[in-house]
């Protein structure tokens, strides 16, 4: 088959009814900083792992709010916890604990 560069894009539909409020509140209880993210993307810009893989804390937080926790986990599984993101975050988010907490809360079924 000739590859024309087109393909099927997975659905990007969001269903906010699926948003798991309990888990989000649980996460916010462990790491309240999740609420103050303003999605500037500084974390993604400096990410060490992001250079080689799809890793983005900003997107992970968005995905959680958009009821796509699995995608969020995928965004964080390559993280090396190097802490660059916490150094550049303009909101002073404790990113390393946020990443660990998201993984902890959303990995458990």
């Amino acid at each position: 088959m000739v590859d024309f560069g087109f393909g099927l894009v997975p659905s990007s539909r969001m269903n906010l009814d699926l948003f798991d409020k309990d888990k989000y509140e649980k996460l916010a209880a462990i790491e309240p900083d999740v609420r103050i993210c303003m999605a500037c993307g500084s974390c993604t810009a400096v990410c060490t792992a992001g250079k080689y893989s799809q890793t983005s804390l900003r997107e992970a937080i968005e995905d959680i709010k958009n009821a796509k926790p699995d995608k969020a986990l995928e965004m964080l599984r390559c993280c090396q916890l190097c802490g660059k993101c916490s150094m550049v975050c303009p909101r002073g988010i404790n990113t390393r604990n946020l990443i660990l907490s998201i993984t902890k809360v959303y990995s458990s079924k």
Partner: peptide, 11 residues
């Protein structure tokens, strides 16, 4: 924390 999932094949 050691049991948390990770994916480092990209290394």
């Amino acid at each position: 924390n050691n049991s948390l999932p990770y994916e480092y094949s990209y290394l």
